[in-house]
């Protein structure tokens, strides 16, 4: 997903403690939900589900991770994707095909008892459907956090809100956020902590990247960063065959961007993609209001409707300041 600029960004990533990230965080909701759905699974790859078979991995992620962030003084808001641009269709179709194949491979692996392969394929088959989005929005709202509906890409909206100063930083795993101009990007925020990867337990720490550090350090402009992205490949275009980040930056710095595109991808018009990164559709129509979590509403939704254990939910809510049996001041205001 996104543009693979890891090598380019690596020297400018700074590991950062959660405590240092106090302030408003604009979370790319699809990206976070996808991570929850991918990571929060049973050993054979089956996502967490309620008694009726509805996926609940994302709800678990939202509750426990968000409660953890809020305890550290981070004020998250969640931005949901709107309509993708027409030139994303190819990526969307490729993802669809990839998931369909992974679903088949998952079933086959389960049938022959290959749990490790089943887990891998189940992760690859992760999908976010309208039911997941609706339940995620409902829980986020019950937690008292703002939901913003982006007209198009969530990363673009997060970047816009960071540029405007309404939020402190954008939260996404995708480097596209930097191409959209976000002055600050935080990765790993929603998945930080101990995680199992390839059977090993590793610690994932949040990392922060400042766009200015990257541009200044690499001696490139934002327009050139977008050009490198386009050469390597983004969600909105296939990259040029055989061009990675190192070659990409060399080509752009030597002024060979247009020539390379003409040679390698003669039928591709980069202008709409460039313009999309520079001037994406965003909305100014959002309300950033944090409310008191609706503790009873959260308990009712998760414990009664989605079969969450009451003790686990109460533990998370207690992290938000509400212990069992504690009344709120609501009744007296």
């Amino acid at each position: 997903m996104g543009v693979d600029l890891r090598e380019l960004v690596l020297p400018y990533k700074k590991e950062i403690a959660l405590e240092e990230l106090r302030g408003i965080a604009a979370v790319d909701a699809f990206n976070a939900l996808f991570q929850f759905i991918t990571i929060i699974r049973q050993p054979d790859g089956t996502p967490l589900m309620d008694k009726t078979g509805r996926v609940t991995s994302h709800l678990s992620g939202i509750l426990f991770r968000t409660a953890n962030l809020m305890e550290k003084g981070i004020k998250p808001l969640f931005i949901f994707d709107g309509t993708p641009p027409p030139f994303k269709e190819e990526t969307v179709q490729m993802r669809r095909d990839g998931r369909a194949l992974a679903e088949t491979l998952h079933k086959e692996a389960l049938a022959r008892g290959d749990i490790e392969e089943a887990y891998k394929q189940a992760r690859a088959a992760s999908r976010i459907d309208s039911t997941i989005i609706a339940s995620a929005k409902r829980l986020i709202t019950l937690l008292g956090l703002p939901v913003v509906d982006a007209p198009s890409e969530g990363e673009a909206q997060a970047a816009y809100m960071t540029i405007s100063g309404d939020v402190g930083y954008a939260v996404s795993q995708d480097y596209d956020t930097l191409l959209f101009g976000s002055p600050a990007l935080v990765r790993n925020l929603t998945v930080s902590g101990k995680r199992k990867m390839h059977g090993r337990s590793i610690t994932v720490n949040p990392e922060k990247i400042f766009l200015d550090d990257l541009l200044f350090g690499q001696k490139i402009s934002r327009e050139e960063l977008i050009q490198i992205g386009i050469l390597v490949g983004t969600d909105f275009n296939r990259g040029c065959y055989g061009i990675g980040v190192k070659t990409g930056i060399k080509i752009v710095k030597e002024g060979g961007y247009e020539k390379t595109l003409k040679e390698k991808m003669p039928d591709f018009d980069p202008v709409p993609v460039e313009q999309f990164f520079l001037h994406p559709p965003v909305t100014k129509d959002y309300s950033l209001e944090w409310k008191t979590p609706d503790f009873e509403g959260i308990r009712a939704m998760l414990c009664e409707e989605y079969d969450f254990g009451e003790e686990r939910v109460n533990r998370a809510l207690s992290g938000l300041g509400l212990k069992i049996g504690q009344k709120t001041l609501d009744s007296w205001f």
């Binding site: 008191t292 503790f295 938000l320 300041g321 609501d330």
Partner: peptide
């Protein structure tokens, strides 16, 4: 002001 959980003012 009230705290996040609306328990104390």
């Amino acid at each position: 002001a009230v705290d996040t959980a609306n328990v104390a003012m």
